[in-house]
Amino acid sequence: MPTNNLPNYYAPTGGHPPQTQLTADRAVFTEAYALIPKGVMRDIVTSNLPFWNGTRAWILARPLSGFAETFSQYIMEVQPGGGSDKPEPEADAEGVLFVVEGELTLTIDGVRHTLVPGGYAFIPPGVQWRVRNDAQAPVRFHWIRKAFEYVDGLEVPEAFVTNEQAITPNEMPGTEGRWSTTRFVDPNDVRHDMHVTIVNFQPGGVIPFDETHVMEHGLYVLEGKAVYHLNQQWVEVEAGDFMWLRAFCPQACYAGGPGPFRYLLYKDVNRHASLKLFR
């Protein structure tokens, strides 16, 4: 059953370090993976976006040669009274919103929803939507965007809104609950071409082999700490860090404790490997 204990989600607040702080951090950018640690998510690396008011964004991933190919991921910070009536500039873009702090008013095709921490919304391409912060404190949420891959004979999935607290995690076989996944979409529903899930580890839980697969990943650590094995290198990560993993990058992890280790995970799914690149 879903827990009644509200989870902790890390969200950046910006700021600027003092001149006395050591310059070197854990930031890494390679051809196989990248690590953007929480310590570099400062005021001077935020972006303003057209038609968004009272808003700034930390852009964590974007389609780029040698970097993310299938998605973009932002952390949005919207001040009271801020938001957008024209949030998405690309007609074929689908999106997922996941709230980590504050309260967000989301309207999809005229239907109003209130999202609090743990709130999740899937927004298919072609729908009208807008967001507003009607509360008295900033709201911070992840916005993951992908160009939807249409398939003849498959319908576009419908929009929906839910909350992590309404979903029972699926335990991975043979792990006694040490490793589980909170799935917002049925993995057998091939209408969806991306999954955004929450992966949960109890202290000491592991991915016990180097996963090597076609899916590209974006991972934002919501809570806890771990060591990740990425392309034969061990990398320490903690709440607030973001990782990009290229398709086929070997990956495994060990949850370091003392509390749960949890991350928001993007991956592209349910489509053929396109050959257009080679035409």
Rank of each mutant, 00 (worst) to 15 (best):
P2M: 09
N4C: 06
N5L: 14
L6P: 03
A11N: 09
G14H: 11
H16Y: 09
Q19E: 14
F29C: 01
E31R: 10
Y33H: 06
G39T: 15
I44K: 10
W52V: 04
L60R: 02
A61G: 08
F67Q: 10
A68P: 00
T70Q: 03
Y74N: 14
V78Q: 01
V78N: 00
P87H: 07
E88P: 00
E90G: 03
L97N: 05
T105W: 03
V111Q: 11
V116Q: 11
P117C: 07
Y120P: 00
A121C: 13
P125G: 09
Q128E: 14
D134P: 03
A135V: 05
Q136M: 08
P138H: 13
P138C: 12
V139E: 03
E155I: 00
P157Y: 09
A159N: 09
Q165R: 12
E171V: 11
E171N: 14
E171D: 14
E171L: 05
G174T: 11
E176V: 01
T182W: 03
V185F: 02
D193R: 13
M194V: 13
T212N: 12
V214N: 06
V214A: 09
Y220L: 06
Y228E: 05
Q233Y: 07
F242S: 14
Q251V: 11
A252C: 10
A255T: 00
G256Y: 06
G259W: 02
S274G: 09
